[in-house]
């Protein structure tokens, strides 16, 4: 395939059947080299199943996929050598220290002995765990474990890093710092990152996202374009004469505005591009009789709006079974204390 050389991941109508249940119903997409690509969808959408097929843990029922230029079924080992993984559920050995976990991983992957120590220092410093390298993992907090898992996934310099819900069950601050690492990583190591999440706000960190629902990709684009596709932004302006501003907007720009909470507000496509036009029109040098604008804000549609527009429900409504999620988070917390 011509794109195989430049694409980190190519997937063609991938299916996965569990008994009668079709968890993944033919997904196709490509991820470019050094891209941060996100899978966004409610629990049970089939995100983990897709990741597991891409990282050779599950055999696809049908369809084709290649990762780092290797077929996930026929060239399993080549795929495995080139990928790093952070699973949804923790996979550290709590009885070992952080350094022992990384060393074991490096050896399992055949990292040359002379490179193990420097690489370990590097990845541990990157996630801020260098000082804790000799601590038993059992005593680590949930956030520390996640960071250690990310460090471990990087030990063998993978070309593609898979992260399955890397931030699930973590507090917002830890989530943010994990995202900072992920972006840093992508810049420093030119690594392709494929991650899943069901937190809407997190998808914003991705270069491109695929929205998945019930085993299918319902939308795939940059977060900006997806949101732009939903339609108009909301523009709110502060003026010294709201009534006059509304009249001027209607007569000069053909916009129906109204007053809400003491400010003039209206919806318009690509609000940011509209702002210069607005100021050109309301320029006191050109039109001194128009009211002066003292402030303007543009708010974008959120990814919640995007999900809603493609599936007809909010992502929370689409969670197949909220109690399941709670259980999983609980289990992770218990795992955190084991």
């Amino acid at each position: 395939m011509s794109t195989a050389a430049t694409q980190a991941i190519t997937v063609e109508s991938l299916h996965k059947q569990f008994g009668d249940f079709e968890a993944v119903k033919g997904v196709s997409f490509e991820v470019g080299a050094a891209e941060v690509f996100g899978f966004l969808g409610p629990n049970g959408a089939g995100k983990s199943t897709t990741i597991n097929m891409l990282c050779t843990l599950l055999t696809p029922t049908s369809g084709k996929a290649s990762v780092a230029g290797h077929d996930v079924v026929r060239e399993r080992d080549d795929v495995r050598r080139n990928i790093g993984l952070v699973f949804q559920d923790p996979t550290l050995d709590g009885y070992l220290t952080a350094a022992q976990n990384l060393k074991l991983h490096a050896e399992l992957y055949g990292v040359p002995t002379n490179l193990v120590a420097p690489r370990m220092e590097q990845v541990l410093k990157m996630v801020g765990l260098w000082d804790r390298r000799d601590g038993q993992v059992m005593a680590f907090s949930g956030g520390m474990r996640r960071r250690l898992e990310i460090a471990r996934g990087l030990m063998h310099s993978p070309r593609v890093l898979f992260l399955d819900e890397p931030t699930i069950g973590l507090d917002p601050q830890t989530r943010r710092s994990i995202w900072t690492y992920i972006r840093q990583l992508q810049e420093r190591e030119e690594i392709t990152i494929f991650m899943t999440t069901h937190y809407m706000d997190e998808a914003e960190w991705c270069d491109r996202i695929a929205i998945m629902d019930q085993g299918q990709i319902v939308a795939l684009d940059t977060p900006e374009r997806l949101k732009a596709g939903v339609g108009a932004d909301r523009v709110t302006i502060q003026t010294d004469d709201n009534e006059a501003a509304i009249t001027a907007l209607r007569e000069r720009l053909g916009i129906q505005a109204l007053i809400a909470e003491g400010a003039v507000t209206f919806r318009i496509e690509s609000g940011e591009q509209f702002v210069p036009r607005l100021f050109a029109e309301f320029d006191p040098a050109r039109n001194p009789d128009l009211p002066a604008i003292s402030g303007v804000s543009v708010s974008r549609p959120t990814l919640d709006d995007v999900f809603m527009s493609f599936t007809g429900s909010t992502i929370r409504d689409a969670e197949e079974d909220p109690s399941k999620l709670r259980n999983r988070v609980m289990m992770q917390m218990m795992g955190g204390r084991r």
Partner: peptide, 27 residues
């Protein structure tokens, strides 16, 4: 860039590792 990371690393000093192919020795 972040308070948690120790110090920013120069991308040039990134230690790159190459995972060798599977062999009897690796098993």
């Amino acid at each position: 860039m972040t308070a948690i990371a120790d110090k920013p690393l120069d991308p040039a000093e990134v230690v790159r590792v190459h995972v060798p192919r599977r062999s009897a020795r690796s098993e």
